[in-house]
Design a protein around this nucleic acid. Sequence first.
DNA 1: AGAGTCAAACAGTTCT
DNA 2: AGAACTGTTTGACTCT
Length: 226
Amino acid sequence: MVFEDICNTGLTLGSTAISNPQNHSKKKPSSSSLKPNRSKIGQIGSKIDACKVDVESTVLYRQASSVSLSSSHSLSSVKREREISGEEVEEERAGSKLSDDQDDQEGGARKKLRLTKEQSVILEDSFKEQSTLTPKQKQVLAKQLNLQPRQVEVWFQNRRARTKLKQTEVEYELLKKCCETLTDENRRLHKEIQELKALNVAAPFYVQIPAATLTMCPSCERIGGT
DNA sequence: AGAGTCAAACAGTTCT
DNA sequence: AGAACTGTTTGACTCT
């Protein structure tokens, strides 16, 4: 492989493009302090919809989790079980009620929706085919997944952003390797020059041309003719 | 649409 | 064992 092939990514080595924006650790705050800031009145309608979905999914998530937690499985298997039971979750999502889950919503703390395995698979498949959706495709997919079109839209936005981030990380690693290789090569060549110079000083036996006809370039220190 | 960000959910590790 | 802490993933939002 040629260096140009590796290095021609069109990227600049800016540190801001490399840093991971998600690496901000936070202590888990108390639920009462977790009020999302919602300032724009114009978006309240859609947010109410989103909240409703979250609340609904919370009920279902809890139901799925409580079953798994009663067993002796590890946390990861709990998650897997929840994903496996996605079909039930999906069914219940459609006809869920809010009334019997008021303890969860005390203080207005909002739980986060997690997509089921099936929903994720379908979204991933769609993304593989096309990374952007037409409004029509969005509608169809939302209906198929029993989600709000807005949720599908947001999922695609996030997916694009995170794909790009991963790609950037891969390219950064490639450029880093490329840079290291070039540095090594540069070091090696400098050393070689020094050795040749030393050799030249020690035994200039090969100079056959009369010294008077030769000139030395002051910058590159090469010997040339007149 | 993309970038930046927040925060819930989850996973792994350390401490008691 | 389980509480506490730390780090990661991901759904959702705002701003440009």
